[in-house]
């Protein structure tokens, strides 16, 4: 297939500063999302995802300003998520230069937000983010449910049915994060990735758990993901984007170079 699988570095940003640290050689300000986005752009990242983890709603103007600064210099797609609650939040981020906006908890509280956002701004810019955990025992068929509050709060919503519902509401893409794997470096949760990728016709971004380049490839070949998202393996300079692409290409996966 000629369409390239996408590699997406993810920046977690709190009050305008990248958290979890970034360790690039020669970078002036490791906390500056603009500097880091520019670096990933130069390396050939296919997209950048920017997750605003700022707790306070009042400080969110900083996010809009940061998005504006990134969009002035980075000419690849930019997805922004975190704390998006209303159409006005989406409009502000799109006007600031985001290409896609990701909706997570607000979609659970108000699924019609996805529908009205897709109708107003176009499905192509509405990403639904899903944080899931396995709730079945090892003896049972695998079942995954949505969680909120960083994986602490169960919702009882089954993941595959939810993905189908969000696609039907007009989501243009799913960003799937396994909260069981997030931060573990054990690799993507491939079972739920495959379940959801097969269940919906819209593209799926796999997230949570990448520790090696093989994990990226597995997300695509075994999980069926259209794009793979990772943070720490790129931030700490363990691997560059070109190294990841070389590896995927060697595994027979189409990439953009």
């Amino acid at each position: 297939m000629p369409l390239a699988r996408r590699i997406i570095p993810c920046l977690d940003v709190d009050q305008g500063r990248v958290v979890k640290g970034v360790n690039f050689v020669g970078i002036r300000d490791a906390g500056d999302p603009v500097e880091i986005a520019r670096r990933y752009n130069e390396q050939g990242a296919d997209e950048i995802t920017f997750l605003d983890i700022t707790a306070s709603h009042e400080q969110r103007d900083t996010t809009v300003q940061t998005v504006e600064r990134i969009a002035r210099e980075v000419f690849i797609p930019l997805t922004v998520g975190g704390g998006v609650r209303a159409l006005s939040d989406i409009r502000a981020l799109l006007n600031a230069g985001a290409d896609k906006v990701s909706i997570n908890t607000a979609a659970i509280h108000n699924p019609d937000l996805v529908e009205s956002a897709a109708a107003r701004f176009g499905a192509q810019c509405i990403v639904v983010a899903m944080d899931v955990k396995r709730v079945s025992t090892d003896q049972e068929p695998p079942r995954y449910e949505l969680f909120t509050h960083g994986g602490r709060k169960p919702t009882g919503i089954e993941a595959v049915a939810w993905a189908r519902k969000m696609a039907a509401k007009g989501a243009g893409e799913i960003l799937l994060t396994s909260m069981d794997r997030d931060g573990t470096r054990d690799g993507f949760e491939l079972t739920v990735t495959r379940q959801i990728s097969e269940a919906v016709d819209i593209p799926l971004i796999a997230s949570g758990g990448v520790g090696t380049l093989a994990h990226l490839a597995d997300g695509i070949t075994e999980g069926g993901a259209d794009a793979v998202l990772a943070a720490s393996i790129f931030h700490f300079g363990e691997f560059t984007i070109p190294e990841a692409k070389d590896y995927l290409a060697a595994r027979g996966i189409e990439v953009r170079r």
Binding site: M1, L3, A4, R6, D46, D201, I202, P203, L204, D226
Partner: peptide
Amino acid sequence: GAGLKDDQGQRLKVPHMGWNE
């Protein structure tokens, strides 16, 4: 269209989203 496939019969997602030749 729904049920879009490439010439090898692989299912293709819609929207067509990403970097193509």
